[in-house]
């Protein structure tokens, strides 16, 4: 069933070496580094899925922070025991459905994904039927609405206080493993008739429908898939952070993902991975910008927020001068192909 060729053996080797690296990291690196690696892994999950609707299908969307929030809350609520919920919910008593929600890790993550997908399909239908243009604005607004809902339904979410003491049930193997799985799934979709259809919609939507593609269905499929994995990523994030609240999932999260996939190359999964490493690593490294600065002996004082300014300038510069990003639309395997695909 699984074609045993040189390519597939190489891929298998790659996955094994990644797990090898994770093993070494989990047992030898310090907590800080492990935390960053976990972060990078989760961002790979998010960036790879965000890339599917934005980069591969070419529909500009700003959805991640909303679906990540949904996923985070679903997983957190599913993992917290009934007793914990009674203890944590301070504004109002937890709703019976919330109390009844008790799942293990994998079902919790799956439910996170499914919840996000259901919402996504509802959102996407009015937008894709009419004007794809509006997807960005609708998803941007959606991110805010989720926060509004989270704050105003304390019997479900504990309102602005949020949830904490989420059990820490994952480690690098989980985040790394799910990251690998997500990338594999995304690549499988891209190298199939569905991926071809998505790229066709991106390249020339009118020609795509002139060739028999149901563009509405394809866009919804891509959007729903992105939502699913963003929900799962949100669940992972909730566990990693162990504390979540409505104002945690701000537009900045979406903005980071946008920079990641633009830097890596819109439409390239390899690019999403590279971008995640660079941006998350870079965010840490650039922390010094938010602290008191002194350059060449001059004291510039402390300007928190300078890091964000640098990132926004970075995005603008990439769009103006290096729109294709690092990988363009290509994957690592395309570079090794013999014939000249550009």
């Amino acid at each position: 069933m699984f074609p045993l060729s040189r390519i597939n053996l190489l891929k298998l080797l790659l996955i094994l070496s990644i797990f090898g690296f994770l093993f070494i990291a989990q047992n030898n690196f310090n907590d800080y580094t492990i935390r960053i690696l976990n972060n990078i892994a989760i961002f790979i999950v998010l960036a790879a899925s965000y890339n599917l609707i934005n980069g591969v299908t070419g529909q500009f969307s700003l959805e991640p922070n909303g679906f990540v929030a949904i996923g985070a809350y679903v997983t957190a609520l599913a993992l917290l025991s009934e007793d914990m919920k009674w203890e944590l919910f301070q504004l109002e008593d937890p709703h019976p459905y919330i109390l009844a929600l008790n799942l293990d890790l994998i079902p919790a993550l799956l439910l996170s994904g499914i919840a996000a997908t259901v919402v996504a399909v509802f959102l996407a239908t009015p937008v894709f039927r009419v004007r794809g243009d509006y997807l960005a604005i609708v998803t941007l607004g959606f991110g805010f609405i989720i926060k509004v809902i989270a704050i105003n339904t304390p019997e479900f979410t504990n309102g602005s206080i949020g949830l904490n003491e989420i059990p820490s049930v994952i480690n690098l193997y989980w985040t790394g493993g799910i990251a690998i799985l997500t990338v594999i799934f995304m690549l499988n979709i891209i190298y199939s008739k569905y991926g071809r259809a998505m790229k066709a919609v991106r390249d020339d939507e009118d020609a795509a429908s002139a060739i028999g593609i149901n563009t509405f269905k394809i866009k919804t499929l891509a959007f729903g898939t992105s939502a699913f994995f963003e929900g799962v990523g949100g669940g992972l994030l909730a566990i990693l952070l162990s504390t979540i609240s409505p104002d945690l999932f701000t537009f900045f999260l979406t903005f980071q993902l946008l920079i990641i996939i633009v830097l890596g190359g819109l439409g390239s999964m390899t690019g999403a991975i590279i971008g995640s490493v660079i941006v998350i690593g870079g965010m840490e490294w650039l922390r010094f910008l938010d602290a008191p600065l002194s350059l060449f002996g001059f004291d510039f004082g402390s300007h928190p927020g300078l890091r964000m300014v640098v990132f926004s300038v970075l995005l603008i510069i990439i769009m103006l001068f290096a729109r294709e990003g690092i990988m363009g639309k290509k994957e690592l395997s395309d570079i090794f192909k013999k014939k000249g695909s550009k």
Binding site: M308, L315, I316, L320
Partner: peptide, 18 residues
């Protein structure tokens, strides 16, 4: 163009913040 607009938006917010 849309991505750049987002970038500008973010830039303005943060430069005023700084």
């Amino acid at each position: 163009l849309l991505i750049t607009a987002i970038g500008i938006s973010f830039f303005l917010e943060n430069i005023v913040n700084v």
